[in-house]
Design a binder for these strands. Sequence first.
DNA 1: TACTGACCTA
Length: 664
Amino acid sequence: MKPITIRDPTKLSSHISTAAKNTEALIIQALDKIPDMKTLNKLHSRIISHPNLHSDTSLAIKLMRAYSACGKPDITRKVFDRMPQRNNVICNVMIRSYVNNNYYREAIMTYKNALASGVNPDHYTFPCILKACSSMTDSRLGLQIHCSAVKKLLHRALFTGNGLIAMYGKCGNLVKARQVFDEMPVKDIVSFNSMVAGYSQNGRFDEAFEVCKEMVSLGVKPNPGTMASLSPAVNNTTFENVTFVKNIFLDMPKDEIVAWNVMIAMYSNNSMSSDAINLYTQMEACGPEPDAITIASVLPPCGDLSALSLGKRIHKYVETKLSLPDLAVENALIDMYAKCGCLKDARKVFDKMIAKDVVSWTSMISAYGRSGKGREAKELFSRMRAFGIYPDSIAFVSILSACSHAGLLDEGRNYYESMTAEFKLVPRLEHFTCMVDLLGRAGRIDEAYNRIKNMPMEPNDRVWGALLSACHVYNNVDIGVIAADRLFELAPHQSGYYVLLSNIYAKAGRWKDVDLIRSIMKEKRIKKIPGVSNVEMGDRVHTFLAGDRSHPQTDEIYLELDVLLGRIKEIGYIPKVDGSLHDVEAEEKENLLVVHSEKLAIVFAMINSEPGVQIRITKNLRVCEDCHVAIKFISKVTEREIVVRDTNRYHHFENGICSCGDYW
DNA sequence: TACTGACCTA
């Protein structure tokens, strides 16, 4: 920089002020760029040491803004405290600094002090302080601010109005929120989004959708914020609503992750697992980088569909791209592996976790439970207790069902006892289902039935369903009929229950009743669900029906199946032909004799994978007795671990033994 | 005179 030469002493002061102006301009320029802390500290010292600048309000404001942006509201406060005069602008900056850094209590204090010292809040102050009220759900102050805004005729101003809607929404006062919303002469997308958020956060999902539809009809295009606001309302919703959300998603920019996340979660929570996975793959290809929320939303669908290769790819992504530990993600990984039948991988994730919550423990316990590994489930439950974690209602559901899957009658009773006596948890419907299942599987049909009769709430179809299956296993026709009667009322279109009752009659030789059931099914047009088995190979899922001959490799599959059946017959397999078969209609008989889908799927997997590789099958019905025996033998002769997931449990076949202990 | 702004994912 050139030295300033002073020729005329009379111009001295003007030179100084020019220099000061230059310095000030430079500092302002630097401050406006939001410098890092180091530069910021330097600039700050220059300002303080400068005789003309240290009390300059506009510089102080810029300085405060910069400190706030660096996440230092405490230093902002020091600058604020040193200023001799406070007007509304500098107070606004101070309050905003607090609010933007989540120091809501301090923001509110500052606001109150400013009011006390005669500072007038304005249209900058209201939106900001309302955000603090929302975050603290301080409805008293919220109301006061509403009154001040009315006095200043600012309550209908766009930003203040939006803040009021949000504040009332958070505080649960939807009447007020709606009133402000309706009275605003000009609304923008944030007004609509805030109204949507208010309704959906308070469980008023229909109204949330209504506002969304209203904004669309008024020509206001929903944005990713709309999706986020609607988010609580999209779980377990109607097909119509799902379609609506899908359409607004298709019609908006795809660069914001929240929109994708809400879509994936919506599919996941509406039993549309394959849609969730498809959208996720699309996101990988052309969307924003998935974050922890994306991952926690897409892993459950992976588990549902047993999409292990995708699940593993996501696990790698988690390890390379996400910042761990993240409880939600790790818990979701455990559950995904468990649902894919990979208990060891689930356990690996579990053991690696630095912090575990009750969900982590519960996921692992129920993973063992569903596989019939009652001992492991019990052990984890006591270890969880030893870690000082309190089991919640769901933890008891998983340990109770673990006991029932493993036939641990007394242990199950004890857990139930401690749940009510020690942990003071009120038994819910799910616990009764578990208990009925536990007693029923152990052959205590009467006791199970009595439990149902003494339930404090109305039993649902799952409770009666547990009783009916028990009656099927233990040939109890009388109680079976009672259970079936209730089920035909509660779930008249579930073909499974008709089939169960029909089988109960067949076992008892009551063929007239079997015919009766069959004619009822015909009359009501209830069709048996055909058995389907899925097996994942590479990136594809291959599906087999009973007697399926549509697969390209079908000849090879049947040939290999014959060879395999021959081999297992040599070591003792006797095909189990049901005794009731002789009295079954011809068509039915044929159905029972065709090769079941799980056998086809297993042979297919065997042909197409390396020896020793684990085979995983998912089935939409329960595995039949004959297949169960056959698969045990197959696991022995081929030295393969075979995991079959049926509708309510896992069978891990290894070396001729199944993890269910033939108890299912 | 100066200060930005708000709604939201599990």
